[in-house]
Design a protein around this nucleic acid. Structure first.
Lengths: 167, 167
DNA sequence: TTTAATATTCAATAAATTCTGAAAGGAATG
DNA sequence: CATTCCTTTCAGAATTTATTGAATATTAAA
């Protein structure tokens, strides 16, 4: 297995992590565990990725909290080893749920609140814009709520979308 | 119009900005222009948001580059004024296209490259995982490509999704 | 042209985020 | 129960990202 290819994948996975808001190191650790056929331990993670053991420990902990990796043990070995959870979907969902709650919902809430103030009426233009926006975000909200309810749901939506051939 | 409500909206809009990867200041400026019935000038943006004129200038420039605000002029007034582009969709698309290109595509590309290496065969488990992931990301890729082709496309997809009742 | 008003740039600074590594904690072994 | 091996924590260092504001450019009017 060509180490350069592996490394390249790890790096681009790290870069993609930014897209869903997890930091580079976490995403790189995730990629490494994903690529490891055998359970991997903290020491090796730190060594392979050139990061400190402390940082590796935090990354592994966080990934464990996201439910995307799992700790396993080897008899006669004191160290903790890690393997990836078989369902590659999990991370996407955990993170999406969290970010929606933290970043999307408050904005929609305050937009609605703003619209409910009747003193906005003076400026029809502004009100119309905000209404248009509220409509859009509400639709997105509905979809997200459905998708993020559970993983099976999302797979259905994805399946539906991929068969959809627009005009 | 209650200034606290406005301010609250501006702040939560700023926070949501993070969700699609634009920084807080840019998103706050965006919200302010959105809320302004009348064209607004650099000086007022800086004053209302408590940011420097330099920063305001950069934000306005960037938003103009994204195509989400437009410069307008008042006769007898030397200053540049800004108004929001009527289509609230625009920013989402411009940014989404850009981020996909920079963050998603390289990861998918290197994943595919990795899979094409036949020396991965030794470890069936790893290969299976990566294949599963490639399938998932390819579907996402297909959907994104369709959606990001043009705005009308996306609206169709959104409409389709919102009428979809799973189970 | 010159002047004056406004906008932009960018080097310096500040703020936020991420990473390190030494110290403390915990658990298996003799 | 002391030792050893491994993990976790967290204050400070390093890095990255965002912001400022003074210098520079631009433009309209006189």
């Amino acid at each position: 297995m060509n180490p350069n290819e592996l490394e390249h994948f790890i790096e681009s996975w790290g870069a993609m992590g930014v897209l869903w808001g997890i930091n580079r190191s976490r995403a790189r650790v995730h990629a490494l565990v994903l690529l490891s056929g055998d359970p991997i331990d903290l020491d090796e993670v730190a060594k392979r990725l050139n990061i400190s053991r402390g940082n590796a420990s935090m990354c592994l902990k966080e990934l464990r909290n996201w439910g995307v990796i799992r700790r396993v043990h080897r008899s006669g070995d004191r160290r903790d080893f890690y393997v990836i959870e078989p369902d590659v979907w999990k991370m996407f969902f955990r993170i999406a749920v969290e970010r929606k709650k933290r970043e999307f919902d408050p904005a929609l809430h305050s937009l609605r609140h703003l619209l409910s103030e009747n003193n906005l009426e003076k400026d029809k233009k502004v009100r119309d814009r905000l209404t248009q926006m509220e409509t859009l975000l509400s639709t997105v909200n509905l979809i997200l709520n459905r998708c993020l309810a559970d993983e099976a749901q999302s797979k259905k939506v994805l399946g539906l979308l991929s068969t959809f051939t627009p005009k």
